[in-house]
């Protein structure tokens, strides 16, 4: 929901970044306010996944220019865990499997870390169990998944739902969903989208990075940005996504 008066959560200016010495982002500008839903679209290699990793501090990427402020704080002066504690969240394109660490143990550890950061009480395992039983309803997940190792033996759809479960537990101010729709069948897509919609409020925001328009039928964006060759080359409303679906990306690339 667009409300020009609402608080700016993220302000990215002229961001440049490289990986292994190759410049991928070549001057990205983006402003996200509370309550907004953004979609960043683009062909493979346009830089959209790099953008999400740079914002969350992946060590493989080096920022070479520009700035990113998160609620007025310089994002690039913060370690990845500090960004998470400040309220940023990344739903991974390829969720990591962690044998030997149970889903519920990880969720409680992460939750309590944020509670401490916010000056609130940690929850013991019993209290946390009450919380988590409510949260798993958001993604229609079977409680048996809580006792299993993180993502180990999960299907593609289950892994993506597990990412949204983490988002539900951590309640970030800004969630970046990196190709959360990839590899999902229509039922899983619907569940994931419903989960995200449930979590949206006027105080938080979502940035979806996606290749396809399909997800946007379920999570309706306020803004659609098209990224090409490391820059945002076009910004429009949700109708821009439909136009991309109909015409492809080439006309924009030529214009850029």
């Amino acid at each position: 929901m667009i409300n020009k008066g609402s608080k700016v959560l993220l302000e990215v200016k002229n961001l440049r970044a490289e990986v292994a010495g190759v410049e991928i982002l070549k001057g990205v500008d983006l402003t996200v306010r509370a309550g907004e839903v953004h979609a960043i679209m683009g062909i493979n290699g346009s830089g959209k996944s790099t953008f999400s990793k740079v914002l969350t501090g992946h060590p493989d990427y080096t920022v070479t220019g520009g700035s990113a402020m998160f609620e007025g704080k310089d994002l690039f002066s913060l370690a990845p865990e500090e960004r998470a504690r400040a309220g940023m969240f990344l739903a991974f394109q390829y969720p990591v499997e962690i044998p030997g660490v149970s889903n519920s143990a990880l969720l409680r550890l992460a939750y309590n870390t944020l509670q401490t950061e916010r000056g609130l009480e940690e929850l013991d395992p019993l209290e946390f169990d009450d919380l988590i039983q409510e949260k798993i309803k958001v993604v229609e997940m079977d409680p048996s998944f809580l006792g299993r190792s993180v993502n180990e033996g999960f299907s593609g759809g289950e892994k993506k739902r597990n990412e949204i479960l983490q988002m539900a537990v951590l309640e970030p101010k800004l969630a970046i969903l990196d190709e959360t729709d990839s590899g999902l069948d229509i039922d899983a897509l619907r569940i994931v989208a419903k989960g995200v919609n449930t979590l949206l409020t006027s105080d938080n925001a979502v940035v979806m990075v996606t290749h396809y328009q399909r997800l946007l039928n379920y999570i309706v964006p306020d803004y659609v940005h098209v990224m090409d060759a490391g820059r945002i080359v076009r910004t429009g409303g949700k109708e821009l996504a439909l136009e991309l679906e109909a015409r492809g990306y080439d006309w924009l690339r030529a214009a850029a």
């Binding site: 969350t56 501090g57 992946h58 060590p59 370690a79 990845p80 865990e81 960004r83 998470a84 504690r85 969240f89 990344l90 991974f92 969720p95 990591v96 962690i98 044998p99 030997g100 660490v101 990880l106 550890l109 992460a110 870390t113 944020l114 950061e117 190792s149 983490q166 951590l170």
Partner: peptide
Amino acid sequence: DADALFFLKSRGLTEERARNLLTHA
């Protein structure tokens, strides 16, 4: 595993906590 480490840090765990958790596992 560097990806597992980044994942855990992106969920708010410190480097040390994340490394200990993975080692413990």
